[in-house]
Design a protein around this nucleic acid. Structure first.
Lengths: 235, 235
DNA sequence: CAGTGGTCTAGACCACCCA
DNA sequence: GGGTGGTCTAGACCACTGG
């Protein structure tokens, strides 16, 4: 087996055997060079890859530590489109079409566990990537969950980021559809009538009950969802 | 900016500017060493990271190429359709349109890590729910992974189930798109031209390398993907 | 200050692909 | 056989951390 893989495996084995607990400091590059009779570049590569995989946490001047693991088992992340876009080195923009309290209709009331006609916050925002619309975000938020929702400046901070900062949801649901856009959505997203859209319905709950219901509509030609995961990372 | 990041950015820029199309060969390590006045290790690191991110496809002895399609982040678990259907107490059926060895074209060869023109297994199956088409499954399978693929009876056992019985993949990738169906697919799925389709590209790997590449196309009106996830609290 | 990780160089040997 | 990538070495300089 390749030397850098042996080193990775040695560290992974040690972690799963409990020889190094979460947060513990693991041997330095210098130590591992001696243990494996390897050059520093080789040891460094092994540790850098483990760091990229989120297994280790490395700090210049301090050492390398076992990362306290977020549960990787279920492969579902809440993700903020602004971060996605800036990770691709593109420019994210928001156009706020709507931000107000409205009366819940029967469907929304049922989903958010409110009485029909109750106050519910509604926002409608178009997200652009390098100026091109990539997502229409239509979001209903329960006032119980985010009472100050209307007072936020969502051109400075995305709704996702704000809501996540309030409280982590305890439960998340995603449903993905392919749909045709109606004429209003076609106009907003600047797409022809023939273009299919990828629509994600995302609902979140906290312990206090339903929190948000978001309908995210994306032009099929400009957006896709993906996930990739390694089945047996840490074993 | 760090040198290896400059090199990565240079390649990413060139790809998004269309200077190197999908599948095109990009400069060799040797070329980039000269361009950036960098050592080979540094160039190599830049290209290795792009390869790990699925941007490049590298083949020893042949060169480095732009990978077709770039995965996005986040989301989603996907089940075997036959199980889904029978869990709903509906009747699952399969129509086998194709099951043969074909020659890999450049795109498939790159994805499955084969030489162009190499033998690769290809199957095309329509799945029906109570007689109505709900999925067109177009699957390429590496002979290295499943040498006896062609000898199976896939009307008795789904391809997914057979492949999973051989070996669990170590890595799985899903990419979800909304697309319009071409006329052949419209006919197969019995849908009108206006109906958008939900398309899932699923790729799997084992330790020995790429194993399968499946394109699953569903009528938007008859199929959606869903997932619900209870977030684990951090300990 | 000594220890540590981040980056980089200038070589090397090997396995592989393709003309 | 010439070009290409995969791995590895033995150095180097730097930035940062901690006692």
């Amino acid at each position: 087996m390749k030397l850098y893989e042996q080193i990775k495996q040695h560290l992974l084995d040690g972690i799963s055997a409990g020889r190094w607990a979460e947060g513990a400091k693991i041997p330095s590059e210098h130590d591992l060079m001696a243990t494996f009779n390897a050059s520093r570049m080789t040891v460094h590569r092994a540790m850098r890859e483990l760091s990229a995989d989120g297994i280790l946490h490395r700090m210049q001047g301090a050492g390398s530590f076992v990362r306290r693991q977020a549960p990787r088992s279920a492969l579902l992340e809440i993700h903020d489109i602004a971060e996605d876009i800036s990770q691709r080195n593109h420019v994210h923009g928001s156009i706020i079409l709507h931000l107000a309290a409205i009366r819940a209709d029967a469907a929304i009331a049922a989903e958010l566990d409110l009485r029909r006609g109750a106050r519910v916050f509604y926002s409608e925002i178009v997200h652009t990537e390098d100026g091109v619309p990539v997502q229409l975000e239509q979001r209903h938020v329960s006032p119980r969950f985010a009472p100050d929702y209307l007072a936020q400046d969502f051109s400075a901070q995305t709704t996702s980021r704000y809501l996540q900062a309030i409280a982590q949801p305890t439960e998340v649901e995603h449903i993905v559809h392919a749909v045709a856009a109606d004429s209003r959505v076609q106009t907003i997203l600047e797409i022809p009538p023939s273009e299919p859209c990828l629509q994600v319905l995302r609902r979140t709950w906290t312990e206090a009950g339903p929190a948000t219901r978001s309908l995210l509509t994306h032009p099929g030609s400009r957006y896709s969802l993906g996930s990739r995961y390694a089945v047996n990372q840490r074993k």
